[in-house]
Nucleic acid binder design. Structure first.
Lengths: 262, 262
DNA sequence: TACTAGGTTTCATTATTTGAAACCACGTTT
DNA sequence: AAACGTGGTTTCAAATAATGAAACCTAGTA
């Protein structure tokens, strides 16, 4: 999944972190060794370093490694400064309240969609259960909305990384089909998820664009075919765009509170 | 704050990440250069690498760097597998509901306390606002509860890293005083925060220990002198210990769902 | 035009990383 | 008890990547 191969030591170290993350549970050295392209000694020292640095934690009881809490601390900062979530929060609240539907805020992480916040009127906000989750870009509303507004150069870089797994019978399964839809989305300024990722789940999504047209993220309102339909969701577009515009506007200033550092 | 100095390249790279994080806002190359011990060229390439790897994001509009979203993704995994939060969640809910007070779940990150979850009956759970925050160990209930149960070797390593800043008139300001209290806490199995960090804020905290006595984290119930007092909080100790024991017990198995990897 | 500040690249030197293999510790088998 | 095997740790010369001083851009200013 990760197209590293970049020679650098830090690249490898981060790659190891990713691999540990993929296990989703504490992992033994030998397991990781089997899953890594690195020779024993190299991997060993890499993990030593990462452990010493607090990015990994070694559990002596279980003889296994997990991601370290230092990551949580870093991510806290990342989330605050580099994600749209803190700004978007009140807007999401309002939108979710008004529509009564689930609202997703996402950004691009490499070739995938990373959900940075979520409002679900039914259940209360679950920490990290939404923030931090990743999903495919080619078959989600937010994903396509972002892809559609990417410069061709970037798009052609991440297009080959799309897996085009056929989740449902509506999933777009090749680049041509996707590109056709992206053009459409670009023209309209919004796009749909037509049960492409999960059956009965539909959504309408709008990109969040900077003044200069750079893709900052995307916002979607999700529902089910049991409750509503695409036409009804389309009615919400003006309201959603009102939100995305507001968020984009705030982002413009936001970036420099310029309070004295420290 | 960071006692790196470890020659490795990854150490330096992570150090750079920390420094970026400390700014709490997008930061220009020159700013970071001024704050770093590394020469121009070195820092430059370090940041190039980190940016290429998605750990930093460069905003071309603002000519500045922020922490990348890849961190959020990694932290999501870290939080799930390496923190007590997912397990403790229901227990925290129950404890908070019963006591009607704020409940904190913390773990040690290097020499600091890292809050991994929190329940505040008043306000709803705020994403990341609690998870990811760090605080001093020597003057918080959870901090001292954890320090008290650390093996001497580890303790003597992190003791010199305590800042002993006198937040309030009750703050312990030297190692001797702290060690005396740690002994007491170890004897009782619980400890207090006697307005040591913030005036009027008091809490009672219990460590979460593994079967073998390893420190996994700590749990505290916090209140104010306006509402209650230490004696009343002490009454809650059995209830809190019931919770910590339950969490510790669950942790024992938890670590290996042993579902087929991938 | 000259000057400056911020950022990028070069290149010979340095020192870290590499990885094959040896080694160690332990629990298992014969 | 000796031999074996697996999982983990260390060694050491060779290969490679990181270093940092300085040169070099680029764009905005005097």
């Amino acid at each position: 999944m990760n197209v590293d191969a970049s020679g650098g030591t830090v690249g490898k170290a981060l790659d190891v972190l990713d691999r540990v993350a993929e296990f989703n549970r504490p992992v033994r050295f030998a397991e990781l060794l089997a899953a890594s392209p690195y020779p024993k000694g190299t991997l060993y020292r890499l993990m030593q370093t990462l452990t010493r640095e607090g990015m990994l934690v070694f559990d002596p009881d279980r003889q296994s490694y997990s991601l370290g809490v230092r990551l949580v601390r870093l991510a806290h900062a990342a989330w605050r400064t580099s994600s749209l979530a803190p700004i978007a929060r009140p807007h999401l609240d309002a939108l979710a309240a008004e529509t009564g539907e689930t609202v997703h805020l996402a950004q691009l992480d490499q070739a995938q969609v990373l959900y940075v916040d979520k409002r679900n009127t039914a259940e209360p906000v679950e920490m990290y259960s939404s923030a931090g989750k990743v999903g495919p870009a080619y078959c989600t509303g937010v994903g396509k909305a972002m892809l559609a507004h990417l410069p061709e150069e970037t798009l052609s870089q991440i297009m080959p990384l799309q897996l085009f797994h056929k989740f449902t019978e509506h999933t777009l399964t090749d680049e041509a089909a996707l590109r056709a839809q992206l053009a459409e989305i670009r023209a309209h300024g919004y796009g749909f998820d037509r049960e492409e990722h999960e059956p009965t789940i539909i959504c309408v999504a709008c990109p969040i664009l900077s003044e200069r047209g750079r893709v900052l993220g995307a916002l979607s309102v999700t529902s089910t075919t049991a409750r509503t339909n695409l036409a009804a969701l389309e009615q919400l577009v003006p309201r959603i765009q009102q939100t995305t515009t507001a968020i984009a506007a705030e982002v413009q200033d936001w970036r420099f509170p310029d309070t004295v550092a420290q």
